[in-house]
Design a protein around this nucleic acid. Structure first.
Lengths: 189, 189
DNA sequence: GACTCATTGTACCGATCGGTACAATGTCGG
DNA sequence: CCGACATTGTACCGATCGGTACAATGAGTC
């Protein structure tokens, strides 16, 4: 039997896309099955907990990607400004310059938040905390660093909403450019 | 027969709350009926177009509220900064200092955007445009005014997401305070 | 009271929902 | 080839979905 979805990584990526486009309620098992090429038998074999486990695994998968590509540079870069630059580039890449929406942000808005509250809080909390740490190391006062970090993460989330509402990718790239400026990075990369 | 929902305004407000909490897909007619105290007979009497017409009416209702309480002050105030101040107060009041989520922003994120794309684009577009106009009248260069307006509206949307993710209302009030500063208003009201 | 017409409750529709059961395959070590 | 186990397709479940039909009831108006 030909496997359409070869590994778990790719599988989670496809399932994530379905959740992203349709939301937790709107992502039916039929849609997920269609997108992945897997029947219910397979889906429930890989995720015995059903739809909720799929969503949890998808969130954890995204969280892991951000841990490796966004949070780690913020935490580990010897030059904090270089880490922030890497964060912005990874963010632009992940959200495909505004074409993609933040699944975890979308989950935070409706009732599915109650199901995944812990994972959601953790994801955004670590983003803000690690960015604030990097800003503090780059010379900002701690309280100022916290405010700037919160402002930047919120600006990214809001820009994703606005870009999608206006159907205009430039909204997102303008927001990233402003974030670069606010965070103390040179104007052009 | 006792009317639980006396007028259309109140009815739309209750239906809006159901959409806000559950999203378009998640807001079932059963939930809407329960919240409003109306059976399907009544709901389809007032909204022959069904769920989609309910959502359209709710968006238009919200749009109308923002037109009166947010956009109009921005447009009509002789002192543009006073208009911006009124906008921020109305925004804080509408979103209940972060307890409430932006229904139209939530709709913008998932597939329901396709159904209501026009209304959604219009709502955010007018918000940004009117704010940019007020900023231009208050002395900013036109391009700078546009950027500031887009940044402020995105910051508000992002703060709503973050506040709900962190379950922390202060996130939203801090964002409004920063917006006030960025837009050139005195620090304390 | 009788004639409107708005409003409502209820029964019902086919479709789809998330989830379960299970037999039939595939893969692979022995 | 064989047994073990992973993987899969399919049939099926009760519940709920959005939507329709319609008779009963409401409040006015004459």
């Amino acid at each position: 039997m030909r496997r359409i979805v070869p590994d778990r990584d790719q599988l989670l990526g496809i399932v994530a896309e379905v959740f992203r486009e349709h939301g937790y309620e709107g992502a039916s098992l039929a849609l997920i099955g269609e997108a992945t090429g897997l029947g219910k038998g397979s889906l429930y074999h890989f995720f015995p907990g059903g739809k909720e486990e799929m969503a949890r695994a998808v969130i954890a998968h995204i969280d892991g990607w951000f841990e490796d590509n966004v949070f780690a540079p913020l935490r580990d870069s010897t030059d904090p400004l270089a880490g922030i630059e890497q964060m912005l580039e990874a963010t632009d890449s992940y959200f495909r310059s505004g074409r993609r929406v933040c699944l975890i942000g979308a989950f935070a808005l409706d009732e599915s938040r109650d199901l995944f509250a812990g994972q959601i809080r953790d994801y955004f909390g670590r983003w803000v905390t690690h960015l604030a740490d990097a800003l503090a190391r780059s010379g900002h006062r701690p309280d100022e660093a916290g405010e700037l970090a919160e402002e930047a993460v919120a600006a990214i989330q809001g820009a994703l909403t606005l870009a999608r509402a206006a159907n205009d990718l430039d909204v997102f790239s303008r927001a990233l450019r402003r974030a670069r400026m606010r965070l103390g990075l040179p104007a052009k990369i």
